[in-house]
């Protein structure tokens, strides 16, 4: 194929991303090494170009790991870190268990129905995330819909709003399409004759599923799990609206440090720790994406 100078098209988006994506990251890293200060913006040192080399030297000497050193000493950060990973892992597991039968069921329908079902799964994603989570407040709150339903069948009320269970329900709800679609994409392409062959060779239906269908769908499982787990670790809106004050997650910690405590270096240090934690899963996900798109 004639390629010519097509790569020139990369220049505008390249420059844009370098300025608005890569450079800001360096700034977060730099700020995480700075100290909190009573100034606007609230950190020190600030790079003073007008003083030339001396200014740069003074700036570099002012950097230290203090913001990081504070993190492991503060119980709040440690527990936020642990519970972010725990809640995201738990929600990913629930999503797999719920999402797999849905994706598998979808892949069993005829072509026209399959297309409509994919549309139906995508459609909620187009409605506002904030609004969908807000809807759950009305369902989960103490005098909400779920508890009035439970009362009608004579069951005791559940305390789900402002709890970890509430956060997991919200995460599962919001991320379900992100689990179902990658699973479906793999299951839909699977060759039906493999399953028939397994059954001809004496496998039961369940046996054929576990020995043929499931192992062949592991790529979808990995894609779905990563696509859900990574953003869930840093999720802010769901733990903030559905979780209690004791449900700490890293995304929420960054937000609180920044907006409530105005401790920008601490917020940056937490953000860097969050990013470092997610780096391995993100790279894994990117390698997978690159393989699929090529």
């Amino acid at each position: 194929m004639k390629r010519g100078r097509t790569w020139l098209a990369a220049i505008p988006p390249y420059l844009w991303l370098a300025l608005f994506f890569a450079l800001p990251f360096l700034l977060v890293a730099k700020l995480s090494l700075s100290d909190t200060a009573l100034a606007i913006p609230p950190y020190a040192p600030r790079l003073d170009w007008s003083r030339g080399v001396a200014g740069v030297m003074a700036f570099v000497r002012g950097l230290d790991l203090e913001a990081y050193a504070r993190l492991p000493q503060d119980r709040i950060y440690v527990s936020a870190y642990a519970s972010s990973l725990r809640i995201a892992a738990l929600a990913t597991a629930v999503l797999l268990v719920l999402g797999y039968p849905i994706a598998y069921g979808m892949s069993r329908f005829g072509p026209a129905a399959r297309q409509a079902l994919v549309m139906a799964v995508i459609l909620p994603f187009w409605t506002s995330f904030l609004i969908r989570i807000y809807a759950w407040i009305a369902i989960l709150k103490p005098a909400g819909l779920l508890n009035s339903l439970l009362a009608q069948v004579g069951l005791p009320p559940l305390q789900l709003l402002n709890s970890e269970a509430g956060v997991i329900i919200g995460l599962v709800y919001a991320y379900l399409p992100f689990m179902v679609l990658p699973l479906y994409a793999v299951l839909e392409k699977q060759d039906e004759s493999l399953l028939e062959a397994a059954q001809d060779l004496g496998a039961t239906r369940a046996g054929a599923f576990w020995q043929v269908t499931f192992p062949l769908s592991l790529r979808g499982v990995a894609a779905g799990a990563l696509l859900c787990f990574i953003p869930m670790v840093g999720e802010f809106v769901i733990p903030d609206l559905l979780g209690g004050s004791e449900t700490l997650m890293l995304g929420r910690t960054v937000w609180t440090e920044f907006f409530a405590n105005r401790d920008w270096p601490a917020a940056s240090a937490v953000a860097i720790v969050l990013l470092a934690t997610l780096l391995a899963p993100i790279l894994l996900f990117q390698r997978q994406q690159a393989k699929v798109l090529r």
Binding site: A18, F21, L27, V28, I230, G234, L278, I282
Partner: peptide, 25 residues
Amino acid sequence: FSGMVYAPLVMPEVILGLSLLLLFV
């Protein structure tokens, strides 16, 4: 380039927001 294109897809929003804010500041 492709790294920069795909990274924001999975990056937690708080990190993107914080880093962009620092740029503007």
